[in-house]
């Protein structure tokens, strides 16, 4: 099958074009009736998995709400210690990366191999930048001040006895989110490698790009909730 945009792509070396992993050569798994059914099933499975992610973080959000009601003072103080500039910067970084992840899916659909790779690379770089800002300007600085979770809390100027709980939840919530950023970046790298090595994704075979992008969007979305709750609401 050739597409309109094939003209945009440089000719593919024989080795890649003949590879069973090249998107033109991909066959659907034996237990599906056709390719569409496989695609629908994979995407449905991914959405179900995203549901579990939402419920996983629901625990953190519920704990946040409960302790916010119990200790409003501690919560107000805690959030005052967070700089919205870094949180805001990270929000922008993630929003951009979500845009590029969505663009990567589009590029796979129209067989724009070059921009597929570029979009994936930008997304991965954004993931790295997010983690860099998080660790370098937030975690390291806060931990240096003694604003550590639980019994490790040694910040001398805490004005409320329960501020350590705030920091516990801050680290659990953002830490779990950072773990998801790492996993998402790993998936994106895998998609990128397969795309470079085999041109594995194209108009008839972009399930993995789509599902990885969906995962990346949920990572973004969770941050969209974490950011105002932790940084903006006093």
């Amino acid at each position: 099958m050739t597409t309109m945009t094939d003209a945009n792509n440089p000719p593919v070396p024989e080795r890649i074009a003949k590879s069973p992993s090249h998107w033109r050569n991909r066959k659907h798994a034996d237990h599906f009736r056709n390719h569409d059914e496989e695609f629908d099933a994979s995407k449905f499975g991914m959405w179900l998995f995203l549901t579990t992610e939402v419920l996983l973080f629901a625990g953190i959000f519920v704990a946040y709400a409960v302790f916010r009601m119990m200790y409003p003072e501690a919560w107000a103080n805690g959030s005052n210690h967070l700089d919205w500039v870094y949180g805001g910067a990270n929000t922008v970084v993630l929003l951009i990366s979500s845009w590029t992840a969505a663009s990567a899916v589009r590029c796979a659909q129209i067989n724009n191999q070059k921009w597929l790779k570029i979009n994936l690379i930008i997304t991965i770089l954004c993931a790295g930048l997010f983690l860099f800002i998080k660790f370098k300007y937030e975690y390291m600085v806060k931990l240096g001040d003694g604003k550590a979770p639980g019994t490790f809390f040694s910040y001398p100027n805490a004005s409320d006895a329960h501020e350590q709980l705030w920091w516990s939840l801050y680290y659990m919530g953002t830490g779990l989110h950072a773990l998801h950023v790492v996993i998402g970046a790993g998936l994106l790298c895998w998609v990128l490698v397969r795309s470079i090595k085999y041109q594995a994704y194209g108009p008839t075979e972009y399930t993995m790009v789509e599902n990885t992008a969906l995962y990346w969007h949920i990572v973004d979305l969770i941050w969209i909730f974490l950011f105002p709750l932790l940084y903006l609401v006093h």
Binding site: A63, V66, F67, M70, Y71, A74, P149, G150, T151, F152, A161, H162, Q164, L165, S168, L169, Y171, M172
Partner: peptide, 16 residues
């Protein structure tokens, strides 16, 4: 790490 979320002595809540 004794993060305290379920520990009443640190303000946490075992009922949670």
């Amino acid at each position: 790490m004794h993060i305290g979320i379920f520990d009443p002595s640190m303000g946490g809540d075992p009922v949670l």
